[in-house]
Amino acid sequence: MIRHLVLFKLNEGVDRDDPKVAAGVSAFEALGERIPELASWECAWNITDRPIAYDYAINCTVADTEALRRYIEHPAHQAGVALWKEFATWVIADYEI
């Protein structure tokens, strides 16, 4: 099993209530039901306000590296990523559990 973690930081001057951000969040919230490779799926806004904190997170699991590849290449995932590229940066960690 592989855990896939992603932490997003909104670009300077971008707020959570921006319509582009809302569209990106909606796209990611739907992935759990749209991508069969996902064994688990969580995504949510950070609830704390600290200088080093990121703004939004994805935490999911897939069976193996092939399932991770299929998830990453899935058209719904790629569409969500395209939206987020317009207003955020992110870091990723994938590890075996």
Rank of each mutant, 00 (worst) to 15 (best):
I2N: 07
H4V: 11
L5V: 13
V6R: 11
V6W: 10
N11Y: 00
E12Y: 06
E12L: 11
G13C: 03
G13R: 02
G13Q: 02
V14F: 10
D17Q: 09
D17C: 04
D17K: 07
D17S: 11
D18I: 04
P19T: 01
P19A: 04
K20L: 03
K20R: 11
V21W: 01
A23F: 04
F28T: 01
F28L: 08
E29Q: 15
E29C: 14
A30V: 12
R34W: 02
P36Q: 13
A39C: 12
A39D: 12
A39K: 12
S40D: 06
W41H: 10
C43G: 01
C43S: 03
C43K: 01
A44V: 00
I47V: 14
T48A: 13
T48K: 15
P51G: 14
I52E: 15
D55V: 10
I58Y: 01
N59S: 07
N59K: 00
V62R: 06
D64C: 09
T65H: 03
A67G: 12
R69K: 15
Y71N: 06
A76K: 10
H77S: 08
G80P: 07
G80F: 06
G80Q: 05
V81G: 09
L83K: 03
K85G: 05
E86Y: 07
F87I: 01
A88M: 08
T89S: 14
W90D: 05
W90C: 08
W90I: 02
V91A: 09
V91F: 05
V91D: 13
I92W: 00
A93I: 05
D94Q: 03
D94T: 03
E96A: 13
